[in-house]
Design a protein around this nucleic acid. Structure first.
Length: 269
DNA sequence: ATGCTAACCTGCGCGC
DNA sequence: TGCGCGCAGGTTAGCA
């Protein structure tokens, strides 16, 4: 489900309900996530939330004495609920807050994770991540330099978190289409000019998706349970065989690294 | 260093 | 209706 825009949407949605409130209790209904939920999670109880932010696709809940890192994996979501509302299937963790509300972590596939960290920025899963795509550090010059000598397909390269974070399958497909670059082209074989276009399109597609509240394919909902509206603006993702919105020829699907890639053989070279 | 594979899970849509 | 199959927004460990 969630790529950067969906995580950002979730972050903005939950922040007002968490910030300056205390996590009074933590209930773990199923701790078998991507990484087993550690008993350290109970250190959250009594902690004041100072802020909620995002790094890559991790939500960072900053506390007075540490932090909680939440990753939504493929199917995770966070919802604010009233304690009286019945639990939904796959509500694995419930955080009761001092404002009387509950934050519930739901994740059917359990690829997500919920971690305690004393110093989140140096956590092994965070340390070593590449720059944020919406920050200035992610520039054409940076991407071009990183790509020198790399034979990896550009799509795979874009989705490599040590190069740049937050670009998942949907938006990698979209940015490449918008830039007219074949997803199969070797990363090291792209001119600076085209890298400029690519970086610019990665930024703009992510920004536009955030404005629309993310992309809902089947089950993404924000913290209020509402879907995102970017799906109707997708050019290629999920449109295999349908006409290219630019040249009308049918879009082609291939698999790269176990992920589906959809592109236009005419418009993308 | 780079690059590829399998693995972690449940649910849904499709063809038969 | 039901069943089996393939596929799904992510990321890591492990091995060549």
């Amino acid at each position: 489900m969630p790529e950067l825009p969906e995580v950002e949407t979730t972050c903005r949605g939950v922040e007002p309900y968490l910030c300056q409130h205390i996590i009074e209790s933590v209930k773990v209904h199923c701790g078998r996530l991507r990484w087993p939920v550690s008993d350290e999670i109970y250190r959250l109880e009594g902690e004041l939330v100072l802020g909620v932010s995002r790094r890559a696709k991790y939500l960072v809940v900053d506390l007075a004495h540490g932090a909680m890192l939440i990753h939504l994996g493929m199917s995770g979501s966070l919802r604010l609920s009233e304690p009286s509302q019945p639990l939904k299937k796959h509500d694995h963790l419930v955080f009761s807050l001092s404002n009387g509300k509950q934050l519930r972590f739901n994740d059917p596939r359990r690829f997500g994770s919920v971690l305690w960290s004393d110093d989140w920025a140096s956590h092994p899963l965070i340390r070593g991540l590449g720059p944020e795509p919406l920050e200035e550090e992610f520039s054409a010059g940076y991407l071009y330099e990183k790509a020198v000598g790399r034979k990896t397909a550009i799509k795979q390269f874009l989705m490599d978190g040590s190069i740049v974070v937050g670009v998942g399958n949907i938006y990698a497909n979209e940015a490449l289409f918008l830039s007219g670059i074949s997803p199969k082209r070797a990363a090291g074989n792209i001119s600076m000019k085209r890298m400029e276009s690519l970086v610019s399109n990665v930024k703009s597609v992510l920004e536009r998706a955030i404005e629309q509240g993310g992309t809902t394919l089947r089950d993404f909902v924000n913290s209020n349970g509402e879907p995102g509206y970017f799906k109707q603006q997708l050019y290629v993702y999920g449109r295999k065989g349908l006409p290219c919105k630019r040249c009308s020829k049918p879009l082609k699907e291939v698999r790269q690294n176990q992920r589906s890639t959809v592109y236009c053989v005419t418009c993308q070279k």
